[in-house]
Each structure stands twice: as C-alpha cells, then as structure tokens.
Design a protein around this nucleic acid. Structure first.
Length: 433
RNA sequence: GGAGAGAUGGCUGAGUGGUUUAAAGCGCACGCCUGGAGAGCGUGAGUGGGCUUAUACCCCACCCUGGGUUCGAAUCCCAGUCUCUCCGCCA
C-alpha cells in the first residue's frame, strides 16, 4: 500500500511512477483523491457533531445527578435528532473510506529510481553472468528423458493422481529433491545468518492481502474447504510461496528497533493455480501447480533496505554457485515487476537440455509497501513508529533448479554426476538407475 | 463434535448506564535526592485519524470483532472470532 500522504502531496510524482509500470493504474489516482477529499470532509463534519453530542450528554448526566429531571428531559429531546444525523454522516464517511481503501489496495508499488524503464521481460538488462554454458561431447538430453530413464520422476502416475501440473518424485529423484532442500536451508542458516522457520501451509486471506496477492490476483490461488462444509471455503488458502506466511509473522506488531534486522528462511511447498497459463511450459516440470521452495525473508530498517537487497541476491547466487550451475542475474524493468515490489532481481539458471535460462529466484525489496498493508512497524529510539522494509527472495525454487541440475550434471552414459556440495546429503557421487 | 469459563493499556487487574480524562499495582522513561546506586518523592508515557509549517494546541475514534438499544455504552442486547479447561475422536 502506498502512503496516502504521498498521494495527496505529490500526486503527479505518484502518477508518473505508476505510469512507468505500464498497467494504466495512474488513472486511479484522480478517483482516489476525490474519495479521500470526500471522506475527509465528512469526517471533520461528523467529528464536530460528535463533540457536541458528548458535551450535551455530560450536561444531561450532571442535571440528572442534581435531580433536575425536567431540564434533563428537555435536553434529551433537543439532542435526539443529533444521533440520527451522526449515524447518517458516519455511514457516508465509512463508505467513502472503504471505497478509497479498496482503490489503495489495488495500486501497485512504485518502482525504485534505479529500476530501468521498460515494457516486458525482453527489456530486462542482464546485470552479471556466472560461469559458462557447459558443453557436452554428446547431444544434451532433456530432463524429461533423463528423469524417465533414471526413474527420478514418474510423470504419468503424477497425472493419474492429481491431473497435469504435478510431479511424483521417485527413488533418487525424491532423495535429490530432499537433499537440495536441506542443502539450501543449511547454507542460509549457517552461512547467511537466517533463522529457520517452518510455517503453516494454509493461511487466512489477510496474509495474502498483506503481501499484495489479494485482492487483485485472488483468482490465482487455491482456496480450501473443510470437508463438505462449503461455509469454510475462503477462510484458508494454500500458500503460493513461503513469503505469504513468513512475511506476515510480525503483522500488526510494533517491533523494537533493536530486533531488526529479522532474517527468516523457510522451506515450504508452493501451490499455484496458474489460471490462464495452460499450455505454457506445461511439458515436464517447468510450470507446475505444486513445487518446493526455500524462501528468504528480511525485515530491516528502511535505510538498510537496499544493502540487504544486494546481500540477499548474493545469498541466493551462492546456492547456484555451490552447485556449479551457470546462471545470470537480471534486473527487472519497470513493466515486468511484481505488484508489491519496488525493485527485483531474477536469477536465471541455464538448462542445457532446454537450451534456455529458467527463472529459479526472484529477489525483491518491497520497501514499506507490504509493511503498510500488514500494519507492521518498529519503534525508533526516539519513539516514532516507522514502517520497515520487507524483502523476499527465493533461495531458490525447486523443480526448475532440479531440471537445470539434472540437465547440467548428465554424463555421456546417461547417469548424473552429483555436485560435491550435495554428496554429503545424497551419500553418493553418481546417480544411476 | 459436546460442556463450561474467559477476552480491559507493556504486564497483573478493578470497573454492570453518566456527573473529569479507564482505578490501583508492577514494569518503563525523565527529573529531584545521592559521592554513586537503591529506596523515597515528583513528572511523563498507548494506537490511529482530522485540523495544522509543526512530533505544539484542539478535536474524534479505539476496553476481541461487527451490529443494535440510548441524549449518553468498557458496562445492556444480538451475532461472530479467538483463547483456556474438561470430555469424545484423532496423526
């Protein structure tokens, strides 16, 4: 959520920054200012009346105390109409405020000044490249073929269980998935200072609203119903990312300044409806309804937001480096950023069998956008309550990492050479049938 | 799922319709006192919003949430949420 005071004081600046994102949201600013103006007018009017009512009620109380019943009754009659007027004005003000807030919740974050202008993914500049594309003395196979030959994934039976977009890891595939999760958690908690948490996989709608997934993108997530009780539908949602529960851990709290920075690391499965994405990358496991991910969340003082951001990207990169994967870091342009983000880097890992880069991490500084929605604050030494910066980054997402790893590690004989970093977890140097 | 109890400020806890702002205690901050500390004394301190150059003044709202009754609600009425205890079921 943007700061209403910023919108009031610098509407042109806000319009300009929203326009840079290219979604046309800047047109909402006029409506919003109109509603805000209306709300403020009604509030100050109703508050005057409330002050009056309060005064008279006290006088009536005093008269009653002095047994001046007749006078008290007379004052009551005079004031009886006041209540109705207040109620009517209150209702009008509440409506204007609610309408204003609905608009506020639908406005995306403003891009940071260092975000390059652009319309789409093709406009994202590559910031750096790590390593080189591996070359093979044989034709590189796709992960689909490798996984089937080595029995790592059973695509057909996954479909039998849950339809398309689901993965059944089997044997070494399941072990590899688990090894990757544990390797990443260990790396972030021991080397990067994150505290491991294991959150609920179902959350209330307020958590989705808090991070900016609701209300605008409500059609992309799975709502849960308890048994046959349709009345419970919509009370809980399957998390689309660990960001949803973890960033909300301290919602509605006022943290001590000394508690910051807070750094959390969590493994969770992620559930995504991917509505409208049918047919796009559905082959194999590039785009699925359920995947595993290790997520990083930082809550920091605003002045430290962007150094934390760089540090978080470096932490996610370390995962790919340790696994010997070739990747590049991309800075998302204004038109390609997520709703809540002010600045985002994507990590794209090379998948030889696909002949393309796969997005395995997205690291964003949402500045105070989410903190405002969650009403998460910290109290400074001086006693002021301020909104912290909230950052999230994948560290990293599986399924796609699995794909890139399998395709990168393939050998001429169709087996996989396990990277040194994973050997302690898998207790083998080679994955064969 | 059944039965009961409860939800008040950072914490404990009083308050069942009014006459000044939610008593009191603990904890907290500052000051006085002291060589220093403690005790003691004094002062202050919540959150959001409106009005403002202003974190000043003034005003409004907030005693779990949402409705209602009333001139007036922490207090009365209705609905809901959550927590705790016991029972049942259960990994």
């Amino acid at each position: 959520m943007l700061d209403i005071k910023l919108i009031r004081d610098q509407p042109d600046f806000v319009r300009q920054r929203l326009a840079a994102r290219g979604a046309g949201d800047e047109r909402l600013i006029d409506d919003l200012l109109k509603l805000d103006e209306q709300w403020r007018r009604q509030v100050s009017e109703v508050e005057t009346l409330k002050a009056q009512r309060k005064r008279v009620s006290k006088e009536i109380g005093a008269l009653m105390g002095q047994k001046k019943t007749e006078e008290a009754e007379a004052r009551k009659r005079e004031t009886s109409a006041l209540g109705d007027r207040i109620a009517a004005l209150d209702r009008g003000a509440a409506e204007a405020e609610a309408a204003r807030n609905q608009l506020m919740l639908r406005l995306p974050n403003l891009p940071h000044a260092t975000v390059p202008p652009g319309k789409e993914a093709a406009d994202n500049p590559v910031i750096r490249v790590h390593g080189e594309k591996p070359s093979f003395a044989f034709p590189a196979k796709s992960h689909v073929e490798l996984c089937e030959k080595l029995g790592l994934v059973d695509f057909e039976r996954a479909t039998k269980l849950s339809g398309s977009g689901f993965v059944l890891y089997t044997n070494w595939g399941a072990k590899l998935e688990r090894a990757l999760i544990q390797f990443m958690l260990d790396l972030h908690t021991s080397a990067h200072g994150y505290t491991e948490v294991s959150p609920p996989y179902m959350v209330g709608p307020q958590c989705l609203e808090g991070v900016g997934q609701f209300p605008k993108f409500a059609d992309q997530y799975y709502g849960v119903q308890e048994g046959l009780d349709a009345g419970t539908l919509g009370k809980l949602y399957l998390i689309p990312t660990a960001e949803t529960p973890v960033a909300n851990i301290h919602r509605e709290e006022i943290l001590k300044e000394s508690a910051l920075p807070l750094r959390y690391c969590a493994y969770t499965p992620c559930f995504r409806g991917e509505a409208g994405a049918a047919g796009v990358g559905t082959r194999g496991m590039i785009r699925v309804h359920q995947f595993d991910k290790v997520e990083l969340i930082s809550i920091v003082k605003p002045e430290n937001g962007y150094t934390e951001h760089e540090q978080m990207v470096a932490g996610a990169e370390r995962v790919l480096q340790s696994l010997g994967l070739h990747y590049r870091v991309v800075l998302l342009c204004t038109g390609d950023m997520g709703f809540a983000s002010a600045k985002t880097y994507d990590l794209e890992v090379w998948a030889p069998g696909q002949g393309s880069y796969l997005e395995v991490s997205s690291v964003s500084n949402c500045e105070d956008f989410q903190a405002r929605r969650m009403n998460l604050r910290f109290k400074t030494e001086a006693g002021d309550n301020r909104f912290p910066h909230v950052l999230n980054g994948s560290g990293t997402a599986l399924a796609r990492l699995f794909v890139a790893l399998v395709e990168t590690c393939q050998q001429a004989d169709g087996t996989l050479a396990v990277p040194a970093a994973l050997q302690p977890y898998l207790k083998t140097e080679r994955i064969t049938t």
